[in-house]
């Protein structure tokens, strides 16, 4: 059973610097947490997530859903950590210094509207 518990457990681990992804016996790597491999249906085991990733793409948005309406411009990126990718918030103020390939570290922050936790990227300087 993964469910909400699986997401919270993953965020706990990331916050402690012990993030992980999943791998099946056939070698397919996957994230988010799931009960079976989305590629082949096989079982999954946890593997350590590399501590640093590379920004694959990013944007700064001036529109948002109501949850972030008071927090635009909002930076969002997708970064590659070893064999998997993660979506995370980026500091919009630093967008001028970003480029594809920028090294990022994964952390966890609370969403301002409701306190739910989300992945964020720290820029590695």
């Amino acid at each position: 059973m993964i469910g909400e518990v699986g997401l919270e457990e993953w965020l706990d681990a990331v916050a402690l610097g012990d993030g992980y992804y999943y791998r099946c016996p056939k070698g397919h790597a996957t994230l988010p947490p799931r009960d079976c491999c989305p590629e082949c249906g096989g079982g999954l085991e946890r593997r350590p997530l590399p501590s640093r990733g590379e920004l694959r793409s990013y944007t700064v948005s001036n529109v948002s859903t109501p949850e972030y309406d008071d927090h635009t411009p909002l930076g969002i990126g997708i970064a590659t950590f070893g064999p998997v990718d993660v979506t995370g918030r980026l500091p919009a103020a630093e967008s001028g210094t970003l480029e594809t390939g920028t090294t990022v570290r994964l952390a966890v922050e609370e969403r301002p509207s409701d306190g739910s936790r989300v992945p964020v990227f720290r820029i590695d300087r």
């Binding site: 948005s61 948002s64 969002i76 997708i78 979506t87």
Partner: peptide
């Protein structure tokens, strides 16, 4: 996390 459709297509 804050992804919207304009944001996703921007990525």
């Amino acid at each position: 996390i804050g992804t919207t459709f304009p944001g996703a297509y921007a990525l």
